[in-house]
Amino acid sequence: MSIVVREISKSFGEFAALRDVSLEVPTGSLTALLGPSGSGKSTLLRVIAGLERPDTGGVSIAEEDVTAEAPQRRGVGFVFQHYAAFKHMTVYENVAFGLRIRHRPRTEIRERVGELLRLVQLEGFAERYPAQLSGGQRQRMGLARALAVDPKVLLLDEPFGALDARVRKELRAWLRRLHDETHTTTVIVTHDQEEAMEVADRIALMNEGRIEQVGTPRDLYERPGNEFVMSFVGPVNRVGDAYIRPHDLELCSEPNGSTQEAMVERLVHLGFEVRVELVRDDGTRLSAQVTREEAAALELDVGQIVYVRAVRQTTFTS
């Protein structure tokens, strides 16, 4: 059940949200639309769902052109950032909604809802109202509700954006496991590159209404196509025209031909890793990443002078 987006443009008044965007989401994949806010990722997702009508271009789902179809007839499951829970219905009624609209027999609905509530670990909560659930539980209910109608594709719009960091991490891992079991073609919108890298097998990185690059998380990280991709998918130092990842900076206690002098300004201990904030004579700042052992071996301390060398750097010819 692939998704094909062809040359979509969409403006809101003067603001061009999408500019001639084309994208293919292969069957069974979990693709992330990643980008800063205002990059058009949510608009693209809503165009796929039919909640937004594109100015030009088309959308196909499972080889069928659905550009003119209403959201009701596209066979998509949609999960909203702020849950969009039906507040006057119980968890059971929320999940059963799509099945009741389809006039499925009562016994079938009961079985299917029970099965889904088990899947999202909300078995004991069927009679509760959304107001009595935590954010994470509400979003799991939203997922069950979307999955109930056996959608051809599952679309998630910043599904974990409103949750705290710990719950977000749990749900991410859980979503990945769910996808590995069901293999439903899934598109997830996120502004968090770590989330995209962790959960998706493909990432489409968006910026200012365009797709900058599509590829596996590793592709984007190791072979970024331009400066924007380079700096969005991970922390980066810019020295002249060169971009250097913090873990590609080597720190030495003695100078050797190719090194440059810098002073340790700040040390941030992040468990296994230590982030070293450096400042050079000319005032440029660098951020290096070393392991705890390396930091200990160098006896790093604030104010200390170290010698820095780039192991690997990337330049873009534009």
Binding site: A49, G50, L51, A70, P71, Q72, R74, V76, G77, F78, F80, H82, A84, A85, F86, K87, H88, F97, G98, I101, R102, G142, R145, A146, A148, V149
Partner: peptide, 23 residues
């Protein structure tokens, strides 16, 4: 959002009005 959710779940405008908006 609730109305949009209902429409992605297959509800027509009338069904959305009666089952979601009015309640």
């Amino acid at each position: 959002e609730q109305e949009q959710a209902a429409s992605t779940l297959g509800a027509s405008s009338l069904q959305t009005l009666v089952r979601i908006t009015l309640p």
